[in-house]
Structures are given as structure tokens and as C-alpha cells.
Simulated scan of single mutants.
Amino acid sequence: MPSIFTRIINGELPSYKIAEDDHHIAILDVNPNTKGHTLCIPKKEVDKLFDLDADSYTGLMQFSRRVALAIGKTVPCDRVGMAVIGLEVPHVHVHLIPLNEMGDMRFQNKVTLDKPEFEALAAAISANL
């Protein structure tokens, strides 16, 4: 099954596209840490950053740099931070996050769960103790 990013790249899902070239796309994160939080994604679906071949890795970093420079010129911030987590979506993506304080890099305040989700999660964790 294609990742959510592949579905965005294929035009099956909407996005707020910032930039695109033959191998990459940059879109605003719809669940941002800060205003301007952007995702840079290779069009080729690869799960883990270091599974990219050397040229693809370098290309993604060069594309991300270009986008980060544009974000820094557009969004008032002290700097643009970069993170590669990869746990939520099994498709390589670089987070570019405008930063004014260290807390802006944290992903802790982005999760919202309802009561049944909390209960199911607690049960699942307990089952694995």
C-alpha cells in the first residue's frame, strides 16, 4: 500500500505544496510544530533515511537546504531546524521547522487522543509488559 506521501505525490490527496522537482516535493506539515513547518520528501518511496542510495540522500539534503533557506527568508525565526524521525510515516521525510526556542523542535504537543484511543493504547502497552 502506498504511503500517505506517495498518495500526495500522485495527486490522490491534497497538500500545501511549496516546491517540487523531478525527485522531491516540499509541502507544509498539516500538523505543524510552528508556522512554516515543512516536509521535504523524495518522490521515490523509501522507508528509512539511510536506506537511500548516496545520490538520493545528497539530493534530498540539497533540496531541503534550498527550501530551508526560503523558509528562513519568509517566516520570522531565529533559525530553521531539521529533523528526520520517520516513525509515523514509512517514507523518508525531512522536517524543516522554524525555531525561536528549543521547545519548537519538540513533537510532544501534537498528539490528540480520545478516551477509547487512550484505553486501547494502555491495554496494548500492558499486554507487552
Rank of each mutant, 00 (worst) to 15 (best):
D51M: 10
M1E: 06
K110P: 11
L96I: 05
V111G: 00
L60M: 07
P42Y: 01
M1I: 15
E12C: 14
L129A: 10
N33L: 10
K17G: 05
S56T: 11
E101R: 15
Q62V: 15
I41F: 04
C40R: 01
G81C: 03
L28F: 02
I27T: 07
L87K: 07
H37A: 06
D55G: 08
P98D: 00
A83C: 12
L87P: 00
I4M: 13
N109A: 12
E20D: 03
T34W: 14
D22H: 15
S56I: 12
P14K: 10
I27G: 04
M1C: 13
P2K: 10
L28S: 01
M61K: 09
D78Q: 10
T34K: 14
A26F: 05
F50A: 13
D22N: 15
F50W: 12
V75K: 00
R65M: 12
I9T: 09
L13G: 01
A54G: 00
N128R: 11
H95V: 05
D78S: 12
P90S: 09
V67R: 07
A123Q: 11
S3R: 14
L60K: 06
K115Y: 01
P116H: 03
A122L: 13
F107H: 03
A54V: 15
R65L: 14
I25A: 04
R7G: 00
N31C: 12
I97Q: 02
A68K: 08
L96P: 06
L113G: 01
H24C: 10
C77V: 05
N100L: 07
H95E: 07
P42D: 03
H93W: 04
L49A: 06
F107Q: 00
L28V: 09
I125T: 07
D104S: 08
E20H: 01
T58H: 02
L28R: 02
N100S: 13
P14S: 08
L13K: 13
K48F: 15
H91A: 03
P14F: 09
T34G: 06
V80D: 06
S126W: 11
K110F: 09
L113Y: 03
N100G: 11
E119K: 14
S15V: 05
K110E: 11
I41D: 00
V67I: 13
A68E: 09
N10G: 03
H37E: 04
L96F: 05
H24M: 03
L113N: 00
D51T: 13
K73C: 09
P90M: 11
F50H: 12
H37D: 00
Y16W: 02
R7K: 15
P32I: 05
S3V: 06
E119H: 08
L28K: 01
E88C: 02
P42H: 04
D55F: 15
S3H: 09
E12M: 13
L121M: 14
Y16T: 15
M82D: 00
L69A: 04
I8V: 14
T6M: 12
E101M: 07
S3E: 06
L99Q: 12
K110C: 14
S3N: 12
V89T: 10
N33M: 14
K43G: 06
K48I: 14
D29L: 07
V75D: 00
L121Q: 10
G86V: 08
K44N: 08
L96Y: 04
F63T: 06
V67K: 11
G59C: 08
T58D: 10
D22Q: 14
D104E: 08
E117D: 03
V46S: 01
H93K: 05
G36P: 06
T38A: 01
N10H: 14
